[in-house]
Design a protein around this nucleic acid. Sequence first.
DNA 1: GCCAACGTTGGC
DNA 2: GCCAACGTTGGC
Length: 153
Amino acid sequence: MNYWLLKTEPNAFSLDDLKEAGVEPWDGIRNYQARNIMRDEMSVGDKVFIYHSRIQPVGIVGEGRVASESYTDPTQFDPSEKYHDAKSDPANPRWSLVDIEYVATYPQVLLLTDLKKMPELDGMVLTRKGSRLSIQPVTEQQWNFIQTLVAGS
DNA sequence: GCCAACGTTGGC
DNA sequence: GCCAACGTTGGC
């Protein structure tokens, strides 16, 4: 069992959208590090925090789980798609994705500004300055600690 | 909307 | 294979 954090811009796709969809292909990831995590490291059943970026309040808003093995992201081959990648070879696709299933909406947003103040989360990728990775690892300790913040309030 | 930090591209 | 220029991310 591994733990991850997925960033999303609620303008484009929010936790509520995921709740409504139930399961959603996490497409449009065009960063090699993030792709490698989905393609090589994620397994069905892994737990993920859903994080809203850009729009206030910025923070962790809920939880999902990995619902499929990785497969080719079809949007890379569709010229009408925002995430079309003309340089991706269909015989050797560049970009992969996994399906993400909705699990829960937390009763309150766990604000980035608060998370940054917590010594237990020192070294978390999310709280690192300049970290832009949209799919990032969360340790079991970090996951469990953040769960206590949800349960305790 | 600004801009620092980061990732990618492409000329050499 | 270096690195400047460019584009993007994302907190503020």
